[in-house]
Design a protein around this nucleic acid. Sequence first.
DNA 1: CTGTTAGCGCGTTCAT
DNA 2: ATGAACGCGCTAACAG
Lengths: 350, 350
Amino acid sequence: MPINTADNKDKSSRDQRHQASGSTLIDVAKVAGVSPITVSRALNRPEVVSDQTLEKVRRAVAEVGYIPNMLAGGLASKQSKLVAVFVPTIAHSLFSDMVQALMDQLGEAGYQSILGITGYSVEKEESLLGAILGRRPDAIVLTGTEHSALTRQRLASSGIPVVEAWDLCDDPIDILVGFSHRAVGKAVASHLLEKGYRRFAVVSVSDARAVKRNEALVNELNAQGVTDVRQVTFPAPATLKEGREGLSQLWSQEARPEVIVCSSDTIAQGVLAEAAARGLKIPEDIAVMGFGDMSSAAQLYPALSSVRLDGARVGALIASALLQRLQNRDDDRTPVRIDTGFELIDRVSA
Amino acid sequence: MPINTADNKDKSSRDQRHQASGSTLIDVAKVAGVSPITVSRALNRPEVVSDQTLEKVRRAVAEVGYIPNMLAGGLASKQSKLVAVFVPTIAHSLFSDMVQALMDQLGEAGYQSILGITGYSVEKEESLLGAILGRRPDAIVLTGTEHSALTRQRLASSGIPVVEAWDLCDDPIDILVGFSHRAVGKAVASHLLEKGYRRFAVVSVSDARAVKRNEALVNELNAQGVTDVRQVTFPAPATLKEGREGLSQLWSQEARPEVIVCSSDTIAQGVLAEAAARGLKIPEDIAVMGFGDMSSAAQLYPALSSVRLDGARVGALIASALLQRLQNRDDDRTPVRIDTGFELIDRVSA
DNA sequence: CTGTTAGCGCGTTCAT
DNA sequence: ATGAACGCGCTAACAG
């Protein structure tokens, strides 16, 4: 209960709280001696405001510590400047790299991101989408091309740009940025056959994209006369444990494989750990084909083979495709389909 | 260009678009045959609405595919249901685990999170905060206790709950959830001295909290008569490269250490990788003290020592502290200070 | 280049 | 238990 409560009509009235969340556009306008809309324009489209008033507004903004209310702004303009990003997890460097790169690029363009972690579940994706759609994001980035019917319907009726990442398909919702998992499977098969391997095994998670790769791998192997590929599959998400367990299972059987194809970097690291524990040499005793980001494992196992993916690059590609769509005034529904490709390497180097 | 464009005045008019982003509370109200405010209540406080109307509203919501506009809701209620979370990176399992756990728990309580990745920079933190404050988050979670003056000022004037995580200090902004890094440094020193080590080295990033630990470590060592602790420091964020380089530098000098204290799990893994490359045995040739989440490295090196931290647990603790504050109608500014503690372990097991 | 008017979609009063 | 009026803070559309 301050005593000095009487109205202070001095023009400066520097007694006021200067609360960030307290001051509005109108406060700024009063201090600057212009109308509210002019302040709005000075902030959002400086080029259409004279330098004089621009300066006055700048000063006023600083003086009252004004922070624009994006809820109000978004409501009025129907532009939330928000992008929703859905990934299965951020515990894999592939996805965390992608998320960081994506957020970074979008951030520079004035967009913020809101993350949805789906845990490889389309149900979780659906429920998260329901919640996040309430924020009226300007765009949505999804992982994979498998989604629930409701998800697809909501996405369609939302009318905003949608990116499906990390896979390719024939009936994308909108923008597609990924690579062919079947091509990966086939390439891995050919590559390893060429190196002379004949006894194959797969340790995999049951993730949809991993399944695609495995199928293509086995198909190609079969086509080349190699049958009887042993597969050990675990429910996603995988940890090192699954990799260790996978190798253990394979090793306890009679016909031991010469090479193990792993569905993820984490699985591969588990396999490598178990191999180390058993004193197995890579690749003499057992060759390992990793997938994703094997850079750290490669420090320990120079002879590691891998399908190398660059999460940060994918994030950057998504960002640029999205921004182009977002910034194009014309509502061009130009179909976008980017094949990010993949690298097949024998000697992974950091 | 559908032919049936003529106005369909039938009460059902099931021809309409049913656009998620198109339908509003009013549309739902019309279909349900109640007033807009009743729909609002049915959605937000079902307990004050009769079961009959509740059911009518439910049906109407489903029929038009209504998704509440949280921008409008937030503007009117001054509750964004948003929590801003700032971390240096999500490429470390410590932080990604924390973020996932935190988002999860907050999500169950109806809060969504918006992530800010600061890259260990208070400047970046400041600029991100400026942008995110515009969304009027209901709470903010920060990493560490070092912030720019402007950040502090904005935080204070925003008047919302603020959590500082991963550290303790004497003048917290608001809620504090962390542990004493000096205590860690001292404990590590005592522990290793007790095990008989005398020649110490440190490989570290220049992160503020790491510096605290190093200082405390060296102080304690000095106090116990161990001087001349060699330190190799790199700018954050660290990768495996820094760890490898660290060991290389230390090994090229004459007085080689018996034990290396690492400032992060990533650094430690780099050191271990370089040790492996040089054929050094852990801990016979060189003992390693890790920090953070060494669970995967421990698969390869059972004799690894480590300060173990549980990111998911920290995330959960933050969430519950925050939710308590957020849900308490009374504006209790009860100071909260949680010491999460840490574990010092010799044999890290997955 | 600047101002005026009129909402954006919802929740908070109050009333009934 | 339900409804009517008003305003949250901002920007779109027109003016001038």
